[in-house]
Design a binder for these strands. Structure first.
Lengths: 215, 215
DNA sequence: CCGCACCCCATGGAAATCCATGTATTGCCA
DNA sequence: TGGCAATACATGGATTTCCATGGGGTGCGG
């Protein structure tokens, strides 16, 4: 299918694990198998586009609960597999973001298709996540004052208005503003607005108020 | 639950329809019942926050196919109900955006919970949709030239650069730019950038090129 | 053929922004 | 205590934007 990707298989049935790993190997795809949710969670996993093939019924915690546990952090797309699945479980799984929910017996093609789209998905996700983490890091590098300035600027306030808002002089605000642009790697105000958007920087409402004040 | 909302019930079994309509009435919720997908699609439906309670098995087309048909247009959130559901169907339904997938027998509480969140969802969806349609209408009111100017401006180009890009004078571009702001209802450049974002106006890449040209 | 919408350009002044340089205060930490 | 980061301010000049007022040209429908 594609280079540089790996499939994690979590299933308590050794025969299933082996069958899946073998299937993947026959497609030249790297795989790591785990027999429990805990094993998977505590394992050192390589950092590359991946897919998690997860059995719903596990000895320690259910696959669905595992899904909830790892939901906080970035994690590879999950493809559930199960022998005794029920509809409510499948609904919950997909609602919580699982990519697919396969019931035995499934064909090799079914698994491979699910894995294929999962890997593609993860590739895109990882790109977005790495961009986001870069932006977040840059945001953390801002000084407190610069973090005050950012929302005012991207809300569309004039330097004068933003400065008044903070009770500082316009010149000082311009310096902060300039530093923000530089540190955030923005090449223009438009760029900064989009970056702030992605960081979910809240907007300041006072623009209208300020304007009608003057009117 | 809430005022000003309606539930559409599509089921070929008259008893189910009546039971559901009665249940809803007991909660003071307006309902309209249909016995087939075609009936639902061709009916005149009131324009208010809604929810579609959809049986998977219908005489004319399957509920899942109906979901696909109405996917293009804005439509209320769908809650599937079924007596003979299978996992692949439920997975497909949720993947395609259904809000829930209930299997008989389900409790009144199950239905009502699903409906409650569906209505809330639709309320939010409708707000977003109406905002979007307003923006789209404004965009359509732009002249062709103004539509040329918009992407350049929100890409962060200076007026001078954008003007050069279009082969017109800077003054003319400023006029277009001003008209764009006015027609789009933007109160600031930052605002215009966010509006363009929502309209998925593609960015122009030439900023870097222009800059390194000058360097 | 007249009006109207669209597109184009110029001039000039007011306002805002960008940028560099220089100065000062605070607070923290090695 | 000396250095460093963060915050703040001023001056002044170059650049950019904003806005109003003027003038052209095209093309289309009443």
């Amino acid at each position: 299918m594609d280079e540089d990707c790996i499939v994690f298989v979590v299933d308590d049935d050794a025969r299933i694990r082996e069958a899946l790993v073998e299937l993947l190997a026959s497609y030249g795809i790297l795989a790591m198998a785990f027999s429990s949710g805990g094993d998977y969670m505590h394992a050192d996993k390589p950092d590359m586009p991946a897919c998690l093939l997860l059995d719903v019924e596990l000895p320690d915690i259910s696959g669905l609960d595992l899904q909830g546990q790892i939901a906080e952090h970035g994690h590879p797309p999950i493809v559930f597999i199960t022998g005794y699945g029920d509809i409510p479980s499948s609904v919950r799984a997909i609602k919580n973001g699982a990519l697919d929910f396969l019931t035995k017996p499934f064909s090799d093609a079914d698994v491979m298709n699910a894995i294929r789209s999962a890997i593609l998905q993860d590739r895109a996700d990882r790109t977005v996540r790495s961009e986001m983490s870069l932006l977040k890091q840059r945001y953390l590098d801002l000084t407190p004052r610069e973090r005050d300035v950012l929302p005012l600027v991207v809300s569309g306030l004039l330097n004068k208005q933003a400065a008044a808002q903070l009770g500082i002089s316009e010149v000082t605000l311009q310096i902060h503003r300039r530093n923000v642009m530089q540190k955030m790697g923005a090449t223009s105000l438009a760029d900064l607005v989009r970056i702030a958007q992605r960081l979910e920087i809240p907007l300041t409402n006072l623009r209208r108020a300020e304007e009608s004040d003057r009117a």
